[in-house]
């Protein structure tokens, strides 16, 4: 009995030891990346970085102000296209379709679209928008990102809406509220936290996308306020600069990497605070 107990205890310690060790290993790498992004990135940040457009190589100064604006614009536009559509489609799956054939096909298709390589989406938008309309544009980039975002939003919205217990819906319906009203003011409210988290993850994911933008929003070395012209983004600029021959380009790429990381983290944290405020 004692021996058996010792053995179980030993197995317990070994297993727990292994999981702590792997956790430490994984967390170590993640923080290593973060540390490098912050240390190398901070070294590259200065006032010019936020206020100037890129300078040619050999020229002192220069910044990424236009790319910062571009990333913001394209991400906001993509969110405006993708999120309402995604939430409504998710609503259909959870509130109306449920076990219908259409719903299961939509689910399956979304699951595949989630894993669709983003570069292929870029190729697709290039073929259906950029080429026929004769030019790269911020709008095309936003469309590509919206397509990438859509299935993520659909699936999270559905999952989160489904977590709202049916008894809640029934209670609201019993009070005489129409189904759509129940959905909007009861079910959405109940699932708000989850949906916002999902949307925020989707926004964060697309704001860091590079591949689908290479052939849609393209890039621009100047300020651009026209949605139908090529527009710079932080990620495409990182790609170009990291591959480029100049040391100060690499510096700028680290700066942009820090910025996009910080932006992603900020979006995440802010939406958490909003959710906490509403729910509390």
């Amino acid at each position: 009995m004692g021996l058996h107990y010792q053995r179980r205890k030993l197995a317990n310690y070994i297993a727990l030891g292994v999981s702590v060790a792997s956790a430490v290993f994984g967390i170590f790498f993640l923080f290593w990346i973060l540390k490098d992004v912050f240390t190398f990135g901070f070294a590259a940040l200065n006032a010019d970085f936020f206020t100037q457009v890129p300078a040619p190589p050999g020229e002192a100064g220069g910044g990424m102000a236009n790319a910062i604006l571009g990333t913001l614009t394209i991400t906001v536009l993509a969110t405006a296209f993708g999120v309402p559509a995604g939430i409504l489609a998710g609503t259909y799956l959870s509130e109306y379709g449920r076990k219908s054939k259409t719903a299961s096909v939509v689910r399956f298709v979304s699951d595949i679209l989630v894993s669709a390589p983003s570069i292929v989406i870029g190729v697709f938008v290039y073929a259906i928008v950029v080429k026929p309309f004769g030019g790269f544009s911020a709008l095309a980039g936003a469309l590509a990102l919206a397509i990438i975002m859509l299935p993520v939003v659909i699936r999270t919205a559905e999952e989160m809406l489904k977590l709202v217990p049916d008894s809640t819906r029934e209670a609201a319906l019993a009070l005489g509220a129409p189904h759509w009203k129940v959905t909007v003011s009861v079910v959405y409210r109940g699932a708000l936290r989850g949906i916002v988290t999902g949307v925020m993850l989707a926004v964060a994911r697309v704001s860091g996308e590079t591949a689908p933008l290479l052939f849609t929003s393209f890039n621009n070395s100047f300020w651009n306020f026209n949605l139908t012209e090529p527009t710079a983004t932080l990620t495409v600029t990182i790609f170009n600069y990291a591959m480029g021959p100049y040391e100060d380009w690499h510096q700028m790429a680290w700066g942009a990497a820090l910025l996009i990381t910080a932006m992603v983290l900020l979006v995440t944290i802010i939406s958490r605070i909003i959710v906490r405020g509403r729910a509390g």
């Binding site: 190589p57 050999g58 020229e59 790269f136 621009n220 012209e229 021959p245």
Partner: peptide, 30 residues
């Protein structure tokens, strides 16, 4: 904002291609 700004912005010409002369072209355009 963007729609209104686009009318006032100066003319933009787009070009793309070889990596080799890119530093030179960007210097010239600057």
């Amino acid at each position: 904002c963007m729609a209104t700004a686009s009318f006032s912005s100066a003319q933009l010409i787009n070009g793309a291609g070889a990596t080799f002369p890119a530093p030179l072209y960007s210097k010239w355009s600057y």
